[in-house]
């Protein structure tokens, strides 16, 4: 798979996706949207990686959408935004742990992307904003996701002012999970990967989905969803082995593939 705007490096079960347009602050263009979705689909199909790390090339994470994608003399339409959200959703629903590793600017679509991940590790010089309102358009499906992280009031303040938030404040607000000096960035990403420990793809996918849907579904309906999900989780070999261990019985050795 030939990639123009992103790069992927795979090692030890970790696929690192680097947004790779450093001269444009890794701004999102049509090609990047397509490549990101294709790559996520390929990672899902391969099922070889446990973790996906998303980062930016150079000194920014991602500065948002590249406005040069809109032709100057044609009527703009929303199809590109629809494709962009589909790519975000594909990343958000990958059956593996996803970590956004953020150094430098993380703005607009860049923040939307970071919010689709399971964890956000940021350097002390990272900054965050949904600046679109200042420019007269909308901060995408950040309107759907941001308040779930930092609360409605703060999301409105941030999204309606377009103000820039520094890394330390982002940590305090709950937008970032771990803050690190620039020199320790790679170590902090590695430590975050290690923190996820043993990864059971089914358990991750289902738990993530339940957390997400907890904002949308009334309690009585949610219990049913939880039971359906838990039924699937406890049918896995991992859970059966766990029970055998609890009974101090031998656990079959995993087959070497």
């Amino acid at each position: 798979m030939k990639l123009e705007t992103i790069r992927v490096d795979r090692a030890d079960g970790v696929a690192t996706i680097t947004l790779n347009r450093p001269d444009q602050g890794n701004a999102i263009n049509v090609i990047m949207v397509r490549e990101l979705e294709q790559l996520c689909n390929r990672l899902e199909d391969g099922a070889a990686d446990r973790v996906v790390v998303l980062r930016g090339a150079g000194d920014a994470f991602c500065s948002g959408i590249d406005l040069r994608d809109f032709p100057p003399d044609a009527k703009p339409d929303v199809r590109g935004f629809s494709r962009w959200e589909r790519a975000c959703r594909t990343l958000e629903r990958l059956p593996m742990v996803t970590i956004a590793a953020i150094d430098g600017e993380c703005a607009g679509g860049g923040l939307q992307l970071a919010l689709t991940c399971d964890a956000r590790v940021a350097t002390e010089r990272a900054s965050f904003s949904l600046h679109e309102v200042r420019d007269g358009f909308l901060p995408g499906m950040g309107t759907f996701r941001l308040a779930k992280f930092i609360g409605l009031g703060r999301a409105r303040f941030m999204g309606l002012t377009g103000r820039r938030i520094e890394a330390a404040e982002a940590l305090r607000l709950g937008m970032v999970d771990r803050l690190t000096p620039v020199v320790d960035f790679d170590d902090a990403v590695r430590a975050t990967i290690a923190e996820f420990g043993a990864i059971h793809p089914d358990a991750i996918e289902l738990t993530r989905r339940l957390f997400d849907e907890s904002f949308e579904i009334p309690y009585e309906d949610f219990v049913g969803c939880f039971l359906a999900a838990q039924h699937r989780a406890i049918q896995t070999d991992a859970f059966k082995d766990l029970v055998r261990r609890a009974h101090q019985l031998d656990v079959p050795r995993p087959k070497d593939d």
């Binding site: 629903r93 996918e205 289902l206 989905r209 949308e216 309906d221 049913g224 969803c225 039971l227 359906a228 999900a229 039924h231 699937r232």
Partner: peptide, 16 residues
Amino acid sequence: GKKVVDAIRYNLGLTE
């Protein structure tokens, strides 16, 4: 029924 639709949704990863 509600339960079986939930079960199918969660096992196939279908949305509402």
